[in-house]
Design a protein around this nucleic acid. Structure first.
Lengths: 335, 335
DNA sequence: AACTTTTATGTACGCGCGTACATTTTCGCA
DNA sequence: TGCGAAAATGTACGCGCGTACATAAAAGTT
């Protein structure tokens, strides 16, 4: 390669990396030789010399077991991350984490498999806190997506779920519903706390009362919503409830199906709003009103915030982004 | 590290890789030192020395634009691949391909970013054929998932889609439907040809006639099914058709929704069966009968076939797997 | 024309591991 | 006890790049 171009390996390296002053004629000769030989530098050797892998790690829970993620959430987010990473010349290293497996995030950095990483589906549990603290202590570049840890100051990209449920409640109130119950997910996700807060705020803002007993807890799965539909039916028939805001579309759909079997129709007999605006929201009868979350955009932002400084060699400043959500009104809320 | 254990770097390497004869006492000392220093070998340096990256490439079309994949398909497959890869100590390198981008698969191998790769969503078009031929010529380890190229002898893992639509047709015939139309996807996917063949076979087997005019073409998206529902309505009302087999759940759902708006209910006014048994199949009213495809298992198999030989250092033999599918009968076929 | 900058290129080395080969130690057996 | 074989470990080098430093060529400057 260097021989064919009649220059030293160092010059080849300079040309290919655009480093230092190069005579135009030399550059042309090198490029020509590279093309002639179909030369592709070894990313392995480059990485070894530069001490960086060129990979952006994406850590996520193994999907089949996980209810937090709709596959919609997951694939939109990943697409956004992938599209952005490639713009920076980074590749995506995907890491599925088994549920009970130790969270050895720091090890990935030590092994130099990744230069930065995004963590999806993090939970506020002790092992997670420790693993993140370890990353922070080592000065690693990482970002939590859709999960915040209060007080820790970690990089975060999240959606404004608080505003989402707030809008959902206002919407239902505007539609004439007044006894709105809330079906939330596990409290180990900051999303859940955010949504609860939005629900509470909205109820109080509009002179409705906030009753802790009007909050039910599922696990974000359709099945959990379906199971709770029995209790919800009683509350509706007794006049205690006339509308539900659910923390995920999947739970909302479970509720919708469960109540339908019991003769209660969303949009006619009660109001229902979900969260995520997943594909399924358009498949139910009636269609499900939902809080749309810009997953793709969140993926882009998270990757961008992490990679932009790395690419420029700058030291990155910390960030906590919260992207806006949008209520999509459909039939299930009488719309 | 070597110093702390009182041995040479070579011995450390041998212990950590389990190579060559090692005195038990030495092994213990090295392991102890490694633990004490929290030593993690650099995968970058290892890869450089071994000339292998330890990464399994997964190439897939950028999702938002793609109708072939339901997100369900995608995430199940990926989970299976991920779970299997990790068993072999491999990591997943995810590569989103922009629709009109050149398919530079071989370059990934040359750059040593990956040791083997799985290709999802391949199409039988000229650039794809060239890119695959290039891989094969270079002797790369790769596997096509859910797409075959006849005559090329490439490694493949697919589902038995032919048997799937065959079963769907038989099921509809058993239910008393007789004028069954077929809604297929683009012919650049081998899936489409397989399904068409299954449809044709089943019709002829049971003494029904095969009419090429009874095959409609969509693009696997819900919207395309929805659009074609106008024509399907006419065929049903005219008595030319009384049931539909669709090549994807998404198209089937589009049809179901379109016909419902026109007053025709699946399972009552006509029979409908989809393919993939995606999440959405359980969300429609009535629920959608569908051909279940073992995506997760396909991902496992594809990764396993590729990595098992690599891990053992053997030369891998070629493989063409076709996994069985299963018809799930639900309300849309009168079940 | 001689000297100083600036520009362009070559030389030499290291990154952290794996491994062939050399060397030393241990063991079996005469 | 001695000697050969096997086991255990050390030594030395290379993998293919990037880059600091040395050097050479070109361009100004007086």
């Amino acid at each position: 390669m260097a021989r064919l171009a009649g220059v030293s390996e160092a010059t080849v390296s300079r040309v290919l990396n655009g480093v230092g002053p190069i005579k135009e004629q030399t550059r042309a000769r090198v490029m020509e030789a590279a093309k002639a030989l179909n030369y592709v530098p070894s990313a392995l050797a480059q990485g070894f010399a530069r001490k960086r892998s060129g990979n952006l790690g994406v850590i996520l829970p193994l999907l089949p077991k996980v209810n937090l993620f709709s596959t919609h959430y997951f694939s939109e987010l990943l697409s956004g991350i992938g599209a952005t990473a490639r713009r920076y010349g980074y590749d995506l290293l995907l890491l599925f984490r088994e549920p009970d497996e130790p969270r050895e995030y720091e090890r990935l950095f030590q092994a130099q498999k990744i230069d930065a990483c995004l963590i999806l589906g993090a939970q506020d549990v002790e092992p997670e806190r420790l693993a993140l603290a370890e990353l922070a202590a080592a000065g690693r570049q990482f970002c939590l997506v859709s999960q915040r840890f209060e007080g820790a100051g970690y990089n975060t990209v999240d959606a404004d779920h608080r505003e989402g449920t707030r809008a959902a409640v206002h919407h239902l109130l505007d539609r004439g519903y007044s006894r709105i119950w809330f079906l939330n997910g596990p409290s180990s996700y900051s999303n859940s706390a955010d949504r609860l807060q939005g629900y509470q705020e909205a109820m109080l803002e509009r002179g409705a009362s906030f009753e802790p007993g009007h909050v039910l807890i599922g696990n974000y799965s359709r099945t959990s919503g379906y199971r709770l539909s029995a209790e919800i039916e009683r509350r509706i028939r007794s006049g205690e409830a006339d509308a539900i805001v659910a923390g995920s579309d999947r739970m909302a759909i479970g509720v919708l199906q469960g109540l339908k079997e019991k003769g209660l129709l969303a949009g006619r007999d009660y109001g229902l709003v979900g969260c995520d605006d997943s594909e399924g929201a358009k498949l139910t009868e009636p269609m499900l009103s939902s809080v749309a979350v810009p997953f793709y955009e969140m993926g882009c932002q998270a990757a961008d915030q992490l990679l932009a400084p790395l690419a420029k060699g700058e030291t990155s400043s910390s960030f906590q982004l919260k992207l806006p959500v949008e209520l999509i009104a459909r039939g299930s809320s009488g719309g």
